[in-house]
């Protein structure tokens, strides 16, 4: 092959030429070396691992390798769950827990979003809020439950306060970071077109911060679940936490694990609901 070619101006289309052969002796194929380090979906692997784990667990129970008193097999847990559904105790306990999570999470999250937003927008709120949040956030909120019981009584209010306070701080941090992270160029753009302050907030800052706020919801929902169980274990007649504690005290491990199963399903349901919310609100991503 020549190194250079003159630009031809053919009157007719030239006949296609066979590709020139590289000299076999002096050349070698270029080896692909860019493999690996790529995540590929292997959905079947997760399902298979799950099925194997459950089967092994069931087998260990049936073969009496493990005492059912310490670890009842999955079938026994499902039977216990069926009984709890039939006698209405699951509904009664679940309703109590859901009510506490609902009220506590809503109050704490609403307050957290407002405070986080204020800290993201106003320098004075940020100057006051950041050190306060940094100082109070690390306190394990369940440690304050006895104080809340003293202040608010053993009833629902102290549990709402524990859950509310527990989700408040992560929501403040998530919202503040999300508002702070809204690109300044978008805000300047709005201002350069004379958009009123409230419009900039509503149409630029809020939607821009929404991914971060929703990510905060995911964290605060799991915190709410942990706190409701803890609070119910400390002082409640009903609720999944109280049920699990009572089952443990009576050594009803199948019922105890049925309660744990309900909690994990509850966590899964909350996560799915938040994913749907994200899909709806963040379609643009």
């Amino acid at each position: 092959m020549p190194d250079t070619t003159e630009a031809p101006r053919p009157m007719t289309r030239p006949a296609p030429q066979p590709a020139a052969q590289a000299p076999a002796s002096a050349s070698r194929p270029v080896r692909f070396r860019g493999g690996g380090f790529v995540a590929e979906p292997r959905r079947w692997a997760a399902l298979l691992a799950f099925v194997i784990a459950i089967a092994a667990w069931e087998a260990s129970g049936r073969l009496r390798l493990v005492s059912p008193l310490f670890l009842p097999p999955p079938s026994a847990i499902l039977l216990a769950l069926q009984g709890l559904v039939a006698d209405g105790s699951l509904a009664r306990n679940l309703a109590a827990s859901l009510m506490r999570i609902g009220v506590g999470w809503t109050l704490g999250t609403a307050a957290g979003v407002l405070v986080g937003f204020a800290m993201g927008i106003w320098s004075i709120a940020r100057a006051i809020g950041l050190p306060a949040v940094s100082a109070l956030f690390p306190i394990p909120k369940i440690a304050l439950l006895p104080l809340f019981i003293l202040w608010l009584g053993i009833g629902e209010a102290s549990k709402f306060a524990t859950i509310g306070l527990g989700v408040f701080f992560p929501t403040v941090i998530a919202t503040y970071s999300a508002v702070d992270g809204v690109p300044r160029n978008l805000i300047r753009m709005g201002q350069s077109f004379n958009m009123p302050w409230l419009d900039v907030l509503r149409k630029v800052v809020l939607p821009g911060a929404m991914p971060g706020i929703l990510a905060g919801f995911r964290i605060s929902a799991s915190i709410a679940l942990i706190l409701v169980v803890s609070a119910e274990m400390i002082g409640a007649d009903y609720g999944i936490g109280a049920f699990v504690l009572n089952a443990g005290n009576l050594m009803l491990t199948d019922q105890l694990l049925a309660g744990v199963l309900v909690l994990s399903l509850l966590g899964l349901a909350i996560g799915t609901a938040l994913s749907l919310l994200e899909k709806t609100l963040l379609k643009w991503r």
Partner: peptide, 25 residues
């Protein structure tokens, strides 16, 4: 009125809503 180097478009708004944004108020 400005035309920005980085376009400064709102990623959650459609083309027409980005243009309409500056007229909404």
């Amino acid at each position: 009125s400005f035309v920005f180097q980085d376009f400064s478009l709102l990623p959650w708004r459609s083309v027409e809503d980005n243009v309409g944004l500056v007229l909404e108020h």
